[in-house]
Structures are given as structure tokens and as C-alpha cells.
Amino acid sequence: MILSETEVREKLSTLPDWITRDGTINVTYKFKDFIQAIEFVNRLVVPSEKSGHHPDIFISYNKVTINLTSHDEGGITQKDFDLAHEIVDIVNSLMIK
């Protein structure tokens, strides 16, 4: 079920650095270098596969941008926020800010 704009804003308040844009929720993380950026992206594989929900990922050297939307639903759903919280946990485990 697609979330309302109000629901999206409320849920974003629990995700530091995440924003909504063009029907997605997204974040950009900056890492020490390319190797650390790729290490982070590799850690996204298991939770993405487990949930059957895959982010759009853009890598530019040490920056990784993640866009989440539920393509099959046509908008932002709870699945996007569930995966976003897992992504935040991964970032925190890498001690990256």
C-alpha cells in the first residue's frame, strides 16, 4: 500500500539524512574512499535479497546514493522504510557518519 505524503514525512523523521524526492526516499553517504563505498554496497546484498526489495544504487568514487521506492506498488511503501532502517544499521555498524 502506498503511503500518504504525511505518512512519508512522519517516517522520514526517524531516518537521519534521508529525504524524499521524485517518488523515492533517498540518501547519499560519503565514505573514506572507493573501497569503503563498495564494502558498504556489498553489505546491502543480503538484506535486499532477504526482503525481496532492491534499492537503486549510484556510486561515484566515495559517494553512494540510495533511492528506494516500491516499483510494483507505484510509490513509497512500508517496505522502503523497513529496508532504509536496515541500511542505517549497516552504516552505523561501519561507523560512518
Rank of each mutant, 00 (worst) to 15 (best):
S60W: 06
I2M: 09
S48V: 01
I87Y: 03
I19F: 12
S70T: 15
E7A: 12
S48G: 11
H54P: 07
I35V: 14
K50Y: 13
V41M: 06
T20N: 06
F81M: 03
P47N: 08
N67M: 14
P16T: 13
V45P: 03
K97A: 10
G75F: 02
M1H: 13
N92M: 09
L83G: 06
I25V: 14
M1D: 11
K30N: 08
L83E: 05
S4T: 13
W18K: 10
L15W: 05
S48Q: 01
T24L: 01
P55F: 10
W18C: 09
P16K: 15
E10Q: 13
G74I: 07
K79C: 08
N62P: 06
G52A: 11
E7H: 05
F58I: 11
I59W: 01
E39K: 15
T20V: 10
L3W: 01
Q36L: 02
V27D: 04
L83P: 08
F81I: 04
S60L: 10
T69M: 04
I19D: 12
D80R: 07
S4G: 07
M95F: 10
K97M: 05
V8I: 15
A84N: 10
S48L: 02
V88H: 02
L12P: 09
I35T: 12
A37G: 00
L68Y: 03
T24A: 11
D22R: 07
A37H: 00
D33K: 03
H71R: 11
K11R: 15
M1I: 09
E7W: 03
T6I: 13
W18Y: 05
I57N: 01
R43N: 14
T20G: 07
E5Q: 11
Q36I: 00
I19L: 11
F34W: 07
R9H: 12
V41T: 11
L68W: 01
F58Q: 12
E39Q: 15
V45I: 15
M1E: 12
H53C: 12
I57T: 04
P47H: 06
V45D: 11
N92G: 08
N67E: 15
M95G: 08
V64M: 03
R43S: 08
F40T: 00
V27G: 03
T65M: 10
I87T: 03
S93I: 05
E7G: 04
P55R: 08
T20P: 02
S60P: 00
I2G: 02
E49A: 14
Y29E: 02
R43H: 14
D17I: 02
N62S: 12
S60G: 04
H85I: 09
Y29L: 09
L68A: 04
D17H: 12
I2S: 04
F31A: 00
H85P: 00
F58G: 06
D89S: 14
V91M: 14
K11F: 06
G75S: 08
W18D: 03
L68D: 04
P47S: 09
Y61T: 08
I59S: 01
F31E: 00
D80Y: 12
A37I: 00
E10R: 13
V46K: 13
F58R: 11
I76V: 13
E86Y: 06
Y61S: 10
G75T: 05
